[in-house]
C-alpha cells in the first residue's frame, strides 16, 4: 500500500515544541538535520519501501480558468496562506501502522540542540487499484 508523507512549511496542528526558525539553527545543526533526512530515505531504499520524494519551493500561485478567450486568473504568491506544502515522500509499505511508524521516525529529525523537532507530518493513503477478484 502506498502512502504519502506530506511535509508542510506552514499549517497542520499547532507545533508541540517551539523549534524556532531554521535560520536560527547553527550550521552544524542544519547539517545534522539534512543528513538525518538523507539517511532516512536511504534506509527505506534498502528495505524496499521507498518510492519517491520531491521538495517544493515556497514560491508559486493559485491559478484558475476565467472564461473562454481570457487568460487564467492568478492569485498569490501565498505569503498569507495558512497551509503551505514543502514536499513529500511516497512510501510503499505493508500497513497503515508501518506508515505511521515511519512518519514518526521522520518527524524525529534533529533540530536546534540536536533535539527532535516533533514536526507534524500528514500521512495519506493512496487509492489502490480495484481488486481483480472481489467476491
Amino acid at each position: 500500500m502506498k502512502y504519502l508523507l506530506l511535509k508542510h512549511y506552514r499549517g497542520g496542528p499547532a507545533p508541540v515544541v517551539d523549534r524556532g526558525s531554521i535560520y536560527t539553527w547553527t550550521p552544524e545543526e542544519m547539517d545534522a538535520h539534512v543528513q538525518y533526512m538523507r539517511d532516512f530515505a536511504e534506509k527505506l531504499k534498502e528495505t524496499g519501501e521507498f518510492v519517491s520524494e520531491e521538495a517544493l519551493s515556497s514560491e508559486g500561485a493559485w491559478v484558475r480558468f476565467d472564461g473562454e478567450g481570457r487568460p487564467p486568473v492568478t492569485d498569490g504568491p501565498f505569503a498569507e496562506t495558512k497551509d503551505l506544502i514543502a514536499g513529500w515522500m511516497i512510501i510503499d509499505v505493508e500497513s497503515w501502522d508501518r506508515a505511521v511508524e515511519l512518519a514518526g521516525e521522520l518527524s524525529a529529525a534533529p533540530g536546534a540542540g540536536g533535539e527532535p523537532i516533533h514536526e507534524w507530518l500528514e500521512v495519506r493513503p493512496f487509492y489502490g487499484a480495484p481488486p481483480l477478484v472481489s467476491e
Binding site: 531554521i22 535560520y23 550550521p27 542544519m30 521538495a55 515556497s58
Partner: peptide, 30 residues
C-alpha cells in the same frame, strides 16, 4: 546579510542552494 541570506534561501531554485543559503544565514547569525 543574515536576513538577506534567509530570504535568498526562501526563493532558491534548488534544494541544494536552499540548504546552502540557510546554512550561510546561520553562519552569519552566529
Amino acid at each position: 546579510a543574515a536576513a538577506l541570506y534567509a530570504e535568498a534561501s526562501r526563493v532558491a531554485a534548488s534544494v541544494a542552494e536552499r540548504d546552502h543559503l540557510a546554512r550561510e544565514a546561520a553562519r552569519v547569525r552566529q
